[in-house]
Design a binder for these strands. Structure first.
Length: 511
RNA sequence: GGCCCGUUCGUCUAGGGGUUAGGACGCCAGGUUUUCAUCCUGGUAGCAGGGGUUCAAAUCCCCUACGGGCUGCCA
């Protein structure tokens, strides 16, 4: 068997959608699993939709996720160039060849004329007018005009496109790895433009030519391409490339978390979760998107989550590092139906990976957020804080709010609990505890625990009446990590001053 | 509208003629804890509907419904 070669072929029209990321992932996994080659090909044949920076964004995204291509615009390779705009002549040559062989023809209908034509047909009750076997002879093309006349026009500079001449009454059959045998009646297929007026190919031609030249063995792409695969099959046949035709695998689409339709870039803003791997700033404010990375997702969690959205290993395992995914991956376990995008599961994965980090690794992960919040810290206490906070964080940025009290006195108090519990004799006891704490020589968690627990027990007090007040006094909140350890990290002076400030505020709250 | 693809707990999925229809997220309850989180235990909830075929259907076939995609000189 030939060496497996797959490509991820995005067009640089904006940030890479998370569905595209999954397509890239499946291509990558399949390539690595089979000791194959993972190729990045930039499909920039639509100059009107070209967005500067999009290609860079795509590469950065792949890098962040650890899926660097083996061949591509940056890596080079034997089959370059890997940007379609740099391969223009190749496509034109094959388009002409198809015309010569009678499998394609020149068409002179302008976009405006086609618009009007479609409009008129629709007015007559035709639902979706097609440029196909039934209409092509009434259009402005070399089939109707004759080749000679067409050539004259072309020589005279009349703009033209080249369209594929789809045969009549033929069943086009192909096999899809995910869906099995798929059939189309050629009469349903339109005469697709394969070479545009600007001399660049459309997706259909460029794709087939490049896949052939790049020796692609498997085309793994989104389901939105299933319908046009019949055209592609025709192209392979006409170009006499049937022998090297790749196998197809069409992936189910990612759907909106609620409601109808596939996941769109607007859903991110709408539901408050990322639909792009990295943040992106477009020309308009509504084209600004926060990425998985900036939301605080780890790349390994993002990958694990995405991998299981439309694929499963065939057993109950769910946690997969990338190398484990490679090991377990196979195309025949890809699911057929679309998957709703559910961010809750993604968060769970992220937490699992966070839990798996060492305290030191966790420090490195939260450090940027700590610094960005202008928190002051000491290296040693950061490690202790990391240990305490790790199981309490789902997304990295949460560290700022949840660990705030370790770094600054500027936090809010949970007033409700103060109102409820800051009264005699609780308040006198809390003040007494503060004073006992002051007497501790060695302010470590053990001593603190002994003092506090001893006091509560000796006075027959209820933990529920005293502890929340201690907590709120020191951290502002009733939730959080071990109080004794928190106090140790804060240090005696800080703890005492927090108590003193808190007592004043408590009085003001209850009065 | 036409064509193509699909439909198992709320969500992601396993299961492909005989299963108490399994797992995970979420949710709920209990345990652990000074609280929260983690962790542990348990629970909740599903084969879209209708016809066939068969001794037996979630599983095979047909129809309907619903969902998705395509229907551009976009990819």
């Amino acid at each position: 068997m030939n060496k497996i070669r797959v490509r991820f072929a995005p067009s640089p029209t904006g940030p890479l959608h998370i569905g595209g990321v999954r397509t890239a992932l499946y291509n990558y996994l399949f390539a690595k699993k089979n000791n194959g080659t993972f190729i990045l090909r930039i499909e920039d044949t639509d100059q009107t939709r070209f967005v500067p920076g999009a290609e860079e964004y795509i590469k950065k995204s792949l890098t962040w996720l650890g899926m660097s291509p083996d061949e591509g615009p940056d890596q080079g390779g034997e089959y370059g160039p890997y940007r379609q705009s740099e391969r223009k002549e190749l496509y034109a040559r094959y388009a002409e060849k198809l015309v010569d062989m009678g499998y394609a023809y020149y068409a002179f209908d302008t976009p405006e004329e086609l618009d009007k034509w479609r409009e008129a047909m629709t007015a007559q009750g035709v639902h979706s007018p097609k440029y196909d076997h039934s209409t092509r002879l009434s259009m402005n093309n070399s089939l109707k005009l004759g080749k000679e006349r067409a050539l004259e026009m072309i020589n005279a500079g009349v703009p033209y496109v080249i369209r594929l001449k789809v045969p009549e009454n033929e069943t086009i059959v192909f096999n899809d790895i995910v869906r099995g045998t798929v059939k189309f009646n050629s009469n349903e297929l339109d005469d697709k433009v394969i070479l545009k007026g600007d001399g660049l190919p459309t997706y259909h031609l460029a794709n087939i030519v490049d896949d052939h030249y790049m020796k692609i063995t498997h085309v793994i792409r989104g389901e939105e391409w299933l319908s046009s695969t019949a055209h592609h099959v025709l192209l392979y046949r006409y170009l006499c490339w049937d022998d090297s035709k790749p196998q197809f695998a069409h992936l189910p689409l990612l759907l909106k978390p609620v409601g109808k339709g596939k996941l769109s870039k607007r859903d991110g803003a709408k539901f408050g979760f990322p639909v792009f791997p990295l943040s992106w700033n477009g020309d308009n404010p509504e084209d600004n998107f926060t990425g998985f990375k900036e939301f605080g997702f780890l790349p390994e969690a993002t990958i694990n989550f995405l991998a299981l959205l439309g694929w499963n290993p065939g057993d109950d395992r769910e946690m997969f590092e990338i190398n484990e995914l490679i090991e377990a991956f196979s195309l025949d376990k890809i699911v057929k139906s679309g998957a709703r995008f559910n961010i809750e599961k993604a968060k769970w994965f992220n937490q699992q990976y966070l839990l798996g980090k060492t305290d030191k690794e966790f420090v490195e992960l939260i450090l940027p957020y700590i610094e960005n919040a202008d928190f002051e810290y000491e290296k040693e206490s950061l490690l202790k804080i990391a240990k305490l906070m790790k199981p309490r964080i789902e997304l990295l940025p949460e560290i700022v709010d949840k660990a705030k009290f370790f770094f600054t006195d500027d936090f809010d108090f949970e007033e409700k609990i103060v109102r409820k519990k800051w009264k005699s004799p609780n308040n006198e006891h809390v003040i007494e505890i503060r004073n006992k704490l002051e007497g501790i020589e060695n302010f470590d968690k053990k001593s603190i625990e002994t003092i506090i627990k001893g006091y509560i027990e000796n006075n027959n007090l209820s933990f529920g009446n005293i502890f929340p007040l201690l907590r709120v006094a020191v951290t502002g909140t009733t939730k959080g990590p071990d109080l004794f350890e928190t106090m140790e990290i804060l240090g005696k002076n800080k703890v005492l001053s927090r108590f003193d400030a808190a007592f004043d505020r408590f009085e003001r709250i209850v009065s």
